[in-house]
């Protein structure tokens, strides 16, 4: 009990047994999730896994059915304005304020954070940070999808939040915009980030830790390397011996290969050892955990 209390106090997000039920459908079936200060955590999972629902509960936009939730030490259902000032929220899609100009909107929103935060971004600095300097006087409604998304992130960052929620930040991005966006996130100073994605490469690239959510349950939680280790025992060894191709899944690739050379020496050709990729792990986990689809 004691440790759990301490853990809750020292983490920016802490949930235990979080449940959400719509009518007779359980969307979240007891989610345990922790984000430490300054940590970047990716909530990864297929569509319909409950990622957005989880995030909306943490943001205080949706009331959970059951479970303990603490965000920055506060139950989001009772989050007050000073609490809100410490959060940055980037939802899946915004189309708001289409007639406002980029700088106009950011300077307007800056006002709200000034009474609460020691540091508030200067609008122009923020516009530069997200690479919209050339578009500062454009109307928000005329921005491209990628530019709009970067503006959304800028809005989320205004008050130097302690915790930033990013829901599917790069959906609809072309590869170039995606790369720029990833670089932008790499430049964030000391902000804890909880991001949802169904893009595995994105999770691997951005996150310190990956939490895989399938059908409303956390099925894995760890760094990319730790997750890969879960199936790492099954490395794949390919080689050619006397002109014939061989493929084996083996628990210990190193000793297998040592043995192979000891037995066959120079007859072994085209050797290739492949550890399970994160993608293999992910797909295996999703297959294991998902109820048989109709």
């Amino acid at each position: 009990m004691k440790t759990s209390d301490n853990q809750r106090r020292s983490s920016v997000v802490h949930t235990r047994g979080l449940r959400m039920r719509y009518g007779s459908t359980d969307v979240l079936k007891g989610v345990d999730l922790t984000v430490a200060p300054g940590e970047v955590v990716a909530l990864l999972g297929p569509n319909g896994a409950g990622k957005t629902t989880t995030i909306e509960i943490l943001e205080g936009f949706r009331t959970r059915s059951d479970g303990q939730v603490s965000v920055l030490g506060v139950d989001p259902d009772h989050g007050d304005e000073p609490w809100r000032a410490r959060l940055g929220v980037v939802l899946q899609s915004w189309r708001d304020h289409g007639r406002w100009r980029v700088r106009e909107l950011l300077s307007y929103l800056t006002l709200f954070y000034e009474p609460y935060r020691e540091r508030v971004f200067d609008p122009d600095e923020l516009i530069g940070l997200v690479g919209l300097t050339d578009h500062a006087d454009r109307r928000v409604g005329t921005l491209s999808g990628g530019q709009r998304r970067r503006l959304d992130v800028a809005v989320g960052l205004i008050g130097h939040p302690d915790l930033l929620f990013l829901d599917e930040p790069t959906v609809g991005f072309d590869p170039e915009a995606r790369r720029e966006f990833h670089e932008l996130l790499g430049r964030l100073p000391g902000t804890a980030v909880l991001l949802t994605t169904h893009d595995l490469a994105e999770a691997e690239k951005l996150a310190d830790r990956i939490v895989i959510l399938v059908s409303g349950r956390v099925v894995a939680d760890g760094t990319a390397a730790e997750l890969a280790d879960r199936i790492a025992g099954e490395a794949e060894v390919r080689y050619r011996l006397h002109g014939r191709e061989h493929v084996h899944s083996v628990p210990d690739a190193t000793s297998y290969v040592r043995e192979l050379f000891a037995q066959h020496g120079t007859a072994v050709d085209d050797l290739e050892v492949r550890r399970a990729s994160l993608e293999d792990v992910y797909l295996a986990l999703v297959r294991e955990s998902e109820p048989v689809a109709a």
């Binding site: 809100r84 939802l91 708001d96 609460y116």
Partner: peptide, 20 residues
């Protein structure tokens, strides 16, 4: 319209945003 395009939600995500 502001509820359709998310302007109200943006206000909700901002401290005292709904009042303003």
């Amino acid at each position: 319209l502001d509820r359709e395009d998310g302007t109200l939600l943006r206000a909700r995500a901002t401290p005292h945003g709904v009042l303003a």
